[in-house]
């Protein structure tokens, strides 16, 4: 029973990590309907920027965190301006290829600068966040992950539903030419959504870095694990990303615990194929109805 409970807790914490890393992905998809193949590298950029500020420059944690957010926000604007702005109005497939190219480029650059080793942050989270519940212990990092996840859910839920920028973003995602002709400033929407996605990815990257250590290969692999999560939850649903993350995390941990560790790595992808077959738009995704 203890084994089961521990697996349950591990699964939920892993799932929260997946959920957190899926948020930035859903942001991009919701605002421009682009499948961002560079997501893992965005996580890594945020994590490494925080490493530079906190460990190498030895700034106070709060200041380093703030600088990372500002830095990634600016970087999001720059990347959008340089690489994605020229593709406005082009086919979606080219934008997706572009994210693939950007991802490889960033990974090469990060490997060149920081190498393939695992780096780690100093321990800074308050111990009071740790929850002890019988024999099961939930570390403070996971509690922090949970709080951040819920916070995102609320903030972005309201952002997309009520703010004018959020509505612009949804309109651009739905139909870019129509949005352009109705006077939506598509370029600004693009810039803003990539900048926000960079920030969200940076926060997720930092949390991932605290838990697993910061390693380019691992973070970019997590960027691909996002796909089963968002397919399960629904590609454009933030709540779905969180629930999907937790479910995938649980399935993965239980498979690892009761069956085999090799199978654990690919079980999310098997689930993905299965979901595409039975419920292609996921739990909370918007079902596209189209008549010809």
């Amino acid at each position: 029973m203890d084994f089961f409970l521990q697996l349950l807790v591990n699964g939920i914490s892993l799932g929260l990590l997946y959920a957190l890393s899926a948020l930035g992905f859903v942001m991009i998809f919701k605002s421009s309907s682009v499948l961002n193949l560079a997501h893992g590298e965005l996580l890594a950029i945020g994590a490494f920027l925080f490493l530079v500020f906190s460990t190498w420059a030895r700034l106070p944690i709060i200041l380093a965190f703030g600088l990372t957010l500002v830095g990634t926000f600016a970087l999001g604007f720059v990347v959008e301006r340089l690489f994605l702005r020229p593709l406005i109005g082009e086919n979606l497939i080219e934008v997706i290829m572009m994210t693939l190219g950007l991802g490889i480029m960033f990974r090469g650059l990060l490997l060149f600068i920081f190498g393939g080793d695992i780096h780690s942050y100093p321990d800074f989270l308050p111990k009071s966040l740790t929850i002890q519940w019988g024999a099961v212990q939930i570390p403070s990092v996971n509690v922090a992950t949970f709080i951040i996840g819920i916070l995102f859910l609320v903030i972005f839920g309201f952002f997309f539903k009520y703010s004018s920028q959020g509505i612009y973003m949804r309109s651009v995602a739905d139909n870019q030419p129509a949005a352009l002709s109705l006077g939506v400033h598509v370029r600004r929407v693009f810039a803003l959504s990539w900048a926000i996605a960079f920030i969200v990815a940076a926060m997720s990257g930092i949390v991932l870095g605290i838990i697993n250590g910061i390693n380019v290969h691992e973070l970019s692999a997590i960027g691909l694990k996002v796909f089963p999560v968002v397919i399960l939850g629904g590609l454009d649903s933030i709540g779905g990303a969180i629930l999907g993350g937790i479910i995938i995390g649980l399935i993965e941990t239980f498979t690892g615990g009761y069956f085999s560790t090799a199978l654990k790595e690919i079980i999310p992808y098997i689930v993905l194929i299965f979901i595409l077959m039975v419920k292609p738009y996921g739990l909370f995704g918007l079902v596209e109805i189209e008549r010809v």
Binding site: F83, L87, M97, M98, G101, L102, I104, G108, F112, G116
Partner: peptide, 16 residues
Amino acid sequence: PLREFVFGLAIVLFII
């Protein structure tokens, strides 16, 4: 790692 970088750069430049 520059190999990956060159690959990515080539893709990006060609698309633009």
